[in-house]
Structures are given as C-alpha cells and as structure tokens.
Write a protein that binds this DNA or RNA. Structure first.
Lengths: 194, 194
DNA sequence: CTCTAATATTCAGTATAGTTAAATTTAAAT
DNA sequence: ATTTAAATTTAACTATACTGAATATTAGAG
C-alpha cells in the first residue's frame, strides 16, 4: 500500500456529516469496503474510487490536486536540503514543494548570516508574517523605525508589511530557523545576480 | 468495468515510443497487467495506476483532467436534448459539456428557424468557424456583403470573423445541424431577455 | 515473399479487493 | 451510571486484480 488516501477520503465524508453506510449505498459498494478504504487496509480499484468520488461530486482531477495540496507530507533529509548561497548569507530550505502552494502556504529554512551581513529590504514590506528562532549568534532586526536585538534562544514573529532588515551585529555566524507565510509573500532568496 | 481509461493510457505510452515491457518494469508490475489495463480487461487498483503514472511523470490530477477533456464520449439522447427557445428560432444542443472546453472545442446543435426569422449579427463577426448542414427548408446566409441561398441538402462552412446572419426566406421551417468552433467564439444562444 | 526477434496477449494459478454477517465501538437517551 | 440503537470495524468467504509462462501477433530484415 503505497498511496494512503484513506484519511483524506474520510475527511471529505465527515465534513459533509455523511455515514459510511449512506455513502457506500450510493456508491454501490459495501460499508465494509468503504471502511477498509478509509482505513488504508486496501488499495481500491479505480472503478471503486471513482464511484465514491461521484457520490461526493468531486472529479478525480480535483480530488488528486487537493490531496496533493493538503495532504502531502514532505520530508527533507538534512543532506538533501536545497542550499542557497548569497553574498554574506546562506539558506537551507526546510519546507517541501507542497507547502509552498495553495492556501496557508509557507516557506521555511535554516538561515545563516556572516558577521556584518544583512538580509531584507529597508524600504519595502510584503504580505504575510514571519517567525524566527535564533539558534546561534546575535542580530538586529530593524523593523520600521524600531530596532530589536535577537540573541540565541530568542524567537521573534512579526507582520511583514512593515519593511524589515536583519543584520548580523555579532562576531560569529548568526543562525536561525525562519518561516515566512504565505510562501510567495517575498522573494526571500533574492536575485541570483546579487 | 465502468471507467475505461485503457486507450488513453496506451496513447500516452505509444506517444513516447515506450514498450509495455519497459513501462511495466519501471512501474514494478507485470507486462501482462499493463496489457490488461490498457485493454480495459480489469480496473486497476489505485496503487497500480499511480505507479504507472509515475513512470510517465504525469500527476493524477493532470491525468484525469486531460482524460476528461480529451477522451470523454458524451451521448445525448434526443429526448434529453437541451432545448433553447428564442423568438422565432429554436435550438437543440447536440454537444456535451466536455466538448465545450479546452483546445479544439465546439458547440453543436439542431437549429430551427420559423419563416422570416433571423439569427446572427450583421455588424459583428466572432472568432472561429461554422458549419451548417441543411435538413429542411430554405434560408439566406448573409455573409458580409455576400448573399448565399441555402436549401435542403446543402452544407456550408465559413470563417466566422466576417459578420453573418441567417434568415429563413422560405415558407416552411428551416432546419439544419450547426457547428461552431471554438465553443466560446460566440454567444450563440443570445440574451435570455430577447 | 519467408523468417526471426521483439512485442503484446492470453491462460491458469496466486494474491488481494470486495462482500456478508458477526463483533465492536460510539453516541444518545434515560 | 446503564441501555439501546446506530455506526463502524473485522473475519471468513467470494470475486477479481496480478503474476509468470505459454502463445499469438507484429515489425523488420533479407
């Protein structure tokens, strides 16, 4: 059993307050079968799955698209992280592709700034919010007219509409986990030419 | 066997000049199984289908969407035709929903004009082409500055960019089959208030 | 045209989906 | 708290997907 759609199918059903019995009857299959499918005990034949989706009035194209968008668990091993190097800073992406799409999307990464390096735009904010968790070092977050010093162990979150910049004011590398939502709120990785 | 995707799956494979053996091996299933699936002998389990689609690098959402767009056979029984009445003329739609979408879409219908009735727009053309096959009666097709008389048995096809109007110049009902492509080239059924 | 190799299909046995009925769980009423 | 009915799950049997080998078909070479 490679593909486990059961929970997603159950979510559709419960969302509509339908019982296994009702759906199974309309789909022309047994209650037992629908239970087994929802519990990932079996991989249904295509005919069976499509009959069930017909009851829900959801086409298979939309079903799979929504499933991919909302149900995929992306695991990125440390060695497999996408690394992005820019002058003075480095990112390791933590979030998979599926989280960068659709509603409530986000980007997450491990950020590293050399001493003196800066990131961000002092003139423009962007849609959404950010979260930072400091692992090592020290940096100043310049948020509009305010200046906040971040040190190891700090976590910071803020609305991104106000222009903001991060500057490593310490003598060592600044390292933090960083999350931006929604995913397309900012071109966080900057221009490749920079 | 309610859903017959076999031919569509085979089209993908042959389009890429792959053999059943190659695809089956990569998908981790037997050649025999892929043959049976393509020939609609069985309804594959979901796992199996998705494994095959992985080999083709096609996500299931796109697969089903393309299948619906390009492979659906819509059969509309005469009694089930959608009837559209307008002043002086009547349409019976012949084409199903799937043909009105995507590339190369079209609308088809059985058109009936009362004596003296007219259809079309003498001032505006629209994108695409039309085909008419006259079953009964007589009408004039005014195409730009030209006037063509259509009688029973005639078939006529033309680019629709030139403004065109159809007028029943006979004493009896004018009946013809009519095809417009693409489907959204013209609001062929006119305003409901007319 | 024949021949051969590659490819696809079919057949019969194995594995698993699908069914029915029994068992278990859950929700609601008292 | 207990009881009951509804809902779900599981077990054992039936139906069909899936396999590997045999057979049939196709394509290409000479």
């Amino acid at each position: 059993m490679k593909y486990k759609l059961g929970a997603f199918l159950r979510a559709i059903r419960t969302e509509r307050s339908l019982t296994i019995k009702e759906v199974a009857q309309k789909a022309g299959v047994s209650s037992s079968l629908l239970s087994q499918i929802e519990r990932n005990r079996i991989s249904p034949s295509l005919d069976t799955l499509l009959q069930i989706l017909e009851v829900y009035g959801v086409g298979p194209d939309k079903f799979f698209k929504t499933y991919e968008t909302s149900s995929t668990v992306d695991i990125i091993k440390k060695d497999d992280r996408e690394m992005i190097h820019r002058k003075g800073f480095k990112y390791e992406k933590l979030s998979g592709r599926s989280q960068t799409r659709g509603n409530h999307s986000f980007n997450a990464f491990f950020l590293e700034l050399e001493p003196g390096a800066k990131r961000g735009d002092p003139t423009k904010g962007h849609l959404g919010r950010e979260l930072g968790i400091v692992v090592n070092g020290q940096a100043d977050l310049i948020y509009g007219d305010e200046n906040y010093t971040l040190t190891e162990g700090d976590s910071v979150s803020f609305f991104s509409e106000i222009p903001h910049t991060l500057i490593n004011t310490g003598k060592t590398h600044f390292q933090a986990y960083w999350v931006v939502t929604p995913a397309d709120g900012e071109d966080f990785f900057g221009d490749k030419s920079s």
